Amino acid sequence: MKGVLLVNLGSPDSPTAKDVKPYLDEFLMDERVIDTPKWLRNIIVRGIILQTRPKKSAEAYSKIWWDEGSPLIVISERFAEKVRKQTDMPVALGMRYGSMTIKKALQELKDKGVDEVLLVPLYPQYAMSSFETVVVKTMEEQAVHFPEMHVTTLPAFYGNTDYIKVLSESIAEGLKDFEYDHILFSYHGIPERHIRKSDPTKFHCKIDNSCCITNSVAHHTCYRHQCFNTTEKVKAFLGLPEDKTSISFQSRLPNDPWLKPFTDFEFERLAKEGKKKLVVITPAFVSDCLETLEEIAMEGKEQFKEAGGEDYIHIPCLNDNDAWVSLMAKWVNEWQSKETLPV
C-alpha cells in the first residue's frame, strides 16, 4: 500500500527558552547544518551558541506565535489535511527537528498498512542543510525501524513549470494595489562551502557570476543555482523588469563565508539608492516560519525604514494556498497511479 510523508523543518514546542534549547541543540548539532567535526561542533553549539541563543530565539518566537501554536506547524498541518482530502492515500506529516519526528510519521503510515512511501521534503531548492538532511534522516529511520518500507523521494521542485505558475500567481496576488519600486527575492542563507560540498564534479561550483548559468550536472544539487533559477522563472512568468528585482540571502553565522549579498545589507542599500517602496519574497520556504514572519516581515521592515525606506510588504509563502495544495495532490496522485515524479 502506498502513502505520503510530508516533512518540514520543525519547531520548538513552545516559545520558551526551556523548549527552544533542545530544539536548537538538535538542529545545530546536525552535521549537515554545521558541518564541522563533532568535537568542534559540540564546542560551537553547546559551549557557545546555546549559552545565549535560546533566550533570544524564544523572544523571537514569542513575537510570531499563534494561539494554535507554532505558525510553521499549524500551517503544515493545514496543508497536510487539505492534501489528504484530494488523495485516497494515507498522508503523514513529520518534522526534521522537534517532537513531531519523522519516526512517528513513518509509524503512523505503517499502522495504516503503508509499505511504499513517497517522501516529500517541503523545500523547493536542494541544500544539504534542508532537503538532504530530511532525506538522510528518513532513510536512517527506515533502515533501522521500518525495513519493510520502500521510500521514493520527490525531487526538489524549484524549477517545475506548474510550481512556478502557482508561486508566481501567489506573488501576483500579493502585488495587487501596491506600487513598488523594487522586489527583493530573499532566500535562506547557507555557507559557501555547502555549495562546494554538494558539487558532484568537485570543480564546477566557483560561486561566481558564471557557474550558475553554465550548464552542469552540479546544478541538480546546487542551492545557489536553484535559487537563481526559481527567481528567473518567476520574473519571466510575471514579466518583472530586470532593474526592479534582485536576490539576497538571509540568516548567517559569524566568522564564516556565507552566500551573498546579505538581505539585511540589501535593505540598507536599496533604501539609500532611493527605493522607497519594497516588496520582499521568500521562495526558499513553502510555509511561513520564524525566518519569514520575524526576521523578514518584522525586523526587515524596521531595518528598511530606518535606512530611509517608506513602504514595505512581505508576501506570504504559499502556506495552504488552494492552488499549491492541488498541485501537491496532483504530484502524489500521479506517483500513485503512474509512478512518475515531476521534473
Results as ranks from 00 to 15, higher is better:
residue 71 P to T: 09
residue 134 V to K: 01
residue 139 M to F: 08
residue 154 L to Q: 02
residue 74 V to E: 14
residue 155 P to Y: 08
residue 51 Q to Y: 11
residue 203 F to R: 03
residue 168 S to D: 04
residue 263 T to P: 11
residue 203 F to C: 09
residue 291 E to M: 01
residue 117 V to E: 02
residue 291 E to I: 01
residue 47 G to Y: 12
residue 214 T to W: 07
residue 266 E to C: 12
residue 317 C to L: 07
residue 221 T to E: 10
residue 26 E to W: 08
residue 127 A to F: 04
residue 73 I to W: 10
residue 108 E to K: 05
residue 270 L to F: 13
residue 214 T to L: 11
residue 215 N to H: 14
residue 108 E to N: 11
residue 242 E to V: 10
residue 224 R to Q: 14
residue 119 L to F: 02
residue 338 K to S: 12
residue 260 K to M: 09
residue 110 K to T: 06
residue 325 V to T: 15
residue 14 S to E: 09
residue 75 I to L: 15
residue 301 K to T: 07
residue 33 V to M: 06
residue 229 N to C: 07
residue 129 S to V: 09
residue 71 P to F: 07
residue 132 E to P: 00
residue 217 V to A: 08
residue 9 L to M: 12
residue 253 L to R: 00
residue 107 Q to V: 04
residue 26 E to V: 02
residue 64 I to N: 06
residue 266 E to M: 11
residue 65 W to H: 13
residue 261 P to L: 05
residue 195 I to K: 01
residue 81 E to P: 08
residue 245 T to P: 03
residue 231 T to D: 10
residue 188 H to D: 02
residue 299 E to G: 00
residue 230 T to Y: 02
residue 214 T to A: 12
residue 227 C to K: 03
residue 238 L to M: 13
residue 49 I to K: 12
residue 338 K to M: 08
residue 242 E to Y: 11
residue 106 L to K: 01
residue 16 T to Q: 06
residue 130 S to R: 00
residue 149 M to T: 00
residue 322 D to G: 13
residue 202 K to F: 08
residue 226 Q to N: 04
residue 250 Q to K: 02
residue 60 A to V: 09
residue 317 C to T: 08
residue 220 H to L: 04
residue 185 F to W: 11
residue 20 V to Q: 08
residue 199 D to T: 06
residue 78 R to V: 07
residue 47 G to I: 12
residue 193 R to Y: 15
residue 305 K to L: 11
residue 33 V to A: 03
residue 118 L to S: 02
residue 215 N to E: 15
residue 111 D to T: 11
residue 207 I to K: 08
residue 270 L to A: 10
residue 138 T to R: 00
residue 1 M to C: 12
residue 205 C to M: 05
residue 97 Y to L: 01
residue 299 E to Y: 04
residue 149 M to V: 01
residue 121 P to Q: 04
residue 124 P to S: 10
residue 35 D to I: 01
residue 307 A to D: 09
residue 6 L to N: 05
residue 266 E to S: 09
residue 108 E to M: 06
residue 333 N to E: 07
residue 170 S to D: 03
residue 25 D to M: 14
residue 37 P to Q: 14
residue 132 E to M: 10
residue 169 E to D: 05
residue 214 T to N: 13
residue 178 F to M: 10
residue 140 E to P: 00
residue 100 M to F: 13
residue 129 S to I: 13
residue 315 I to Q: 03
residue 83 V to R: 01
residue 113 G to E: 07
residue 183 I to M: 10
residue 242 E to I: 12
residue 196 R to W: 04
residue 144 V to I: 06
residue 220 H to N: 15
residue 62 S to C: 10
residue 261 P to E: 09
residue 49 I to W: 03
residue 337 S to K: 02
residue 236 A to W: 01
residue 144 V to Y: 00
residue 220 H to D: 14
residue 197 K to R: 08
residue 165 K to D: 07
residue 252 R to F: 04
residue 92 A to H: 04
residue 43 I to Y: 03
residue 246 S to A: 12
residue 312 Y to S: 14
residue 184 L to K: 04
residue 267 F to A: 13
residue 133 T to G: 09
residue 319 N to T: 11
residue 117 V to T: 03
residue 242 E to K: 14
residue 259 L to K: 04
residue 246 S to V: 08
residue 299 E to H: 10
residue 63 K to N: 15
residue 225 H to V: 05
residue 336 Q to L: 14
residue 311 D to M: 12
residue 261 P to H: 11
residue 208 D to C: 06
residue 15 P to T: 15
